[in-house]
């Protein structure tokens, strides 16, 4: 009880919390044609962002298949949602072809692959982790560790929420339908 009392006392003396500015993660990354893309051009749309790499045969296809399912099930409302695949292994993914990869899942998914600095800046802005992991048992001797969640950005560019890896497509769909 003493502990609680102390906590309340301290809380009473704290200044009123400052209203936090909206969290607006950003990026400036080229698409497969080399055109620089930024969030402002998707203004008015919800953006569904996934950071991954195309040499990822297990986790990334599962999430991208869920995104594809959501886009199909949205029907007419799909025009209000832009799914993005941001490569965290951009050099190799540009060489392998990022458009071919995203197209295998859904035609609406836009693949972006920048240089090392642009990629790090985008990941930092979204506050996500990625790192190169040397591994002799992986293609080219390395694999990537990464945050495999999906991030939802609102029409004003505000970060709305994340969908952790494994969130059923039906749950993502229901959440989006409530917002559109």
């Amino acid at each position: 009880m003493l502990g609680y009392g102390t906590m309340f006392l301290i809380a009473d003396r704290l200044p009123a919390p400052v209203v936090e500015a909206p969290f607006r993660p950003t990026f400036a990354l080229p698409d497969a044609e080399g055109r620089l893309r930024t969030p402002t051009e998707f203004g008015g749309k919800h953006i569904l962002v996934f950071f991954g790499f195309t040499n990822c045969p297990d986790v990334c296809p599962t999430t991208l298949a869920d995104v594809a399912q959501v886009m199909d099930d949205l029907g007419d409302e799909a025009t209000q949602v832009q799914p993005l695949f941001i490569s965290i292994d951009p050099e190799r993914d540009r060489r392998l072809g990022i458009a071919e990869f995203t197209a295998a899942f859904h035609p609406t998914i836009l693949g972006l692959a920048g240089d090392a600095n642009q990629t790090r800046a985008a990941a930092d802005s979204f506050r996500i982790h990625y790192a190169r992991e040397d591994d002799a048992a992986a293609p080219d001797g390395y694999s990537m560790s990464h945050s495999p969640a999906l991030y939802l950005i609102g029409p004003e560019g505000d970060w709305l929420r994340q969908f952790t890896y494994g969130t059923p497509a039906a749950d993502i769909l229901a959440d989006l339908q409530n917002r559109l």
């Binding site: 591994d135 560790s145 952790t164």
Partner: peptide, 19 residues
């Protein structure tokens, strides 16, 4: 020509792959 058993692990929100 390179067929191996791998495992994906998810820990503290980060996924990794290991042989």
């Amino acid at each position: 020509t390179m067929t191996m058993l791998h495992e994906t692990t998810l820990s503290e929100g980060i996924s990794r792959m290991a042989h």
